[in-house]
Design a binder for these strands. Structure first.
Lengths: 241, 241
DNA sequence: TTATAAAATTGACATTTATCAATGTTTTAT
DNA sequence: ATAAAACATTGATAAATGTCAATTTTATAA
């Protein structure tokens, strides 16, 4: 359930890919490490490749690693009773995954699954803890990173509980454009079911809202390719709930 | 909007109340501080008293302090568009509040409001940051604490998005008994509206579910006093969604 | 204590959202 | 190229939840 295919000790990482591993447009949390500390990290790091659909981290397994995404797109979701899924977040290139609970009971709170092919690095939590105690700047950066990710998910969920479906879909479309793909016609690579799972509604309901937006000329949709035509309308819909 | 009444530099804290400030049944995060570090904390600490209903921390204000609750009950909630409130968590004696975003943009993500009278200590974030860089054990403890609180709120919200109303109410009643009041007939001191705000539903809907539980002899209700009669039934309801 | 306000409850009804089944479309494997 | 599977769409309908208004109960202040 943990790293399916542990490949070689990350050869390519000798070039210190960690130093380029950004998150959320923030400064790299590994930048504050000394050369020795970085060596420690790189030495133990494992490079793993996942095909689309494979599970990277599984909810309720023990949290022994953190994962850095080198390339690709993955989804973080909570598995509820009876096949219920709620996608909490998408993570793309240069993101860092803690799986929810590295710092709590050492049990993963969420599942992470590859949406596209994903190339990533597995780092033992132990190493991270070691660095936290050695380097306080690193500790602080990690605290910030962790908090930022959680807050984003919380705010997203608050929206889901407070807004009607059109508002939720509007928020999602804007989020995908602004935060994940950062381009306007964007190709989600996500199924309708997955998009619906990001908004806490059924696929059928999601499709209906999308259809309404299409016929109101707010967006254009071609398969998994979405083009926002009237961003202001979406913003208003999102505000209104 | 910040500390309404800053009283004297916390006289009573000379007895190192911090060393008794537990959270969530976990070990005290201040325990790992040296005597000097604790002095630093206590010297700058302010003791503040709030009446029921007063706002302790306000969403969207700048996050200059963390707060430790010495006694009383407070609610953490997200304020949405148009008076919409969602109570994310209750915090009782010996809890530590970060207000959501001390480590992120320094803006509070949530509002914290006193439910009963609340006695608490305000500590500058700067002092906390200073301690994080001085003491790595403290950094790690804080990381854990912060993460645990966020995960709890996330899991709660996931439940709200995935379950029908009876399941949500069942979860809430069990949560109040097990985590907050730790006794069986318990007095919530919360209005129906507040209880409803913890489940993301309207007050009227909440009351109806409560009534159903009452007529099924699952609970007994007397004002804000709730007695769980058939805990198993609630557990099943919570699982089923 | 009484008047007044606030909170809780109930009912009727409207709206939102999910469910189920049928059909069309695209992708995948032979 | 064709069959099979997976995915997407649509419609009809049922269930869940919210809204609004009226009423009762409880708390509060003069």
């Amino acid at each position: 359930m943990e790293p399916r295919i542990i490949e070689e000790a990350c050869a390519r990482c000798k070039d210190h890919c960690c130093t380029r591993c950004l998150n959320d447009g923030e400064l790299n949390i590994f930048n504050c490490l000394t050369k020795e500390e970085l060596e420690l990290l790189v030495k133990e790091k494992r490079h793993v490749h996942f095909k689309a659909g494979e599970t990277i981290l599984k909810q309720n397994t023990s949290a022994s690693h953190i994962v850095c995404i080198r390339s690709g797109l993955a989804k973080i979701f909570a598995e509820g009773e009876g096949d219920k899924k709620l996608i909490l977040n998408l993570v793309a290139t240069h993101s860092i995954l803690t799986g929810g609970g590295i710092f709590m009971d050492e049990i993963r709170q969420f599942t992470v699954q590859a949406v596209t092919e994903v190339d990533c690095c597995f780092i033992y939590s132990d190493k991270i803890f070691e660095l936290v105690s050695k380097n306080s700047t690193f500790a602080f950066q990690l605290l910030k990173l962790n908090n930022r990710q959680n807050i984003r998910m919380l705010n997203n969920l608050v929206g889901i509980t407070q807004k009607y479906m059109p508002g939720r879909v509007a928020d999602l479309l804007l989020y995908l454009k602004n935060e994940i793909f950062q381009s306007n016609p964007y190709d989600t690579r996500l199924s309708r079911q997955e998009l619906a799972d990001m908004t806490g509604m059924t696929m059928e309901s999601f499709i209906r809202i999308l259809k309404e937006f299409k016929s109101s000329a707010i967006i254009a949709v071609e398969g998994s390719n979405i083009h926002i035509l009237d961003e202001d309308a979406l913003i208003i819909l999102g505000k209104k709930g």
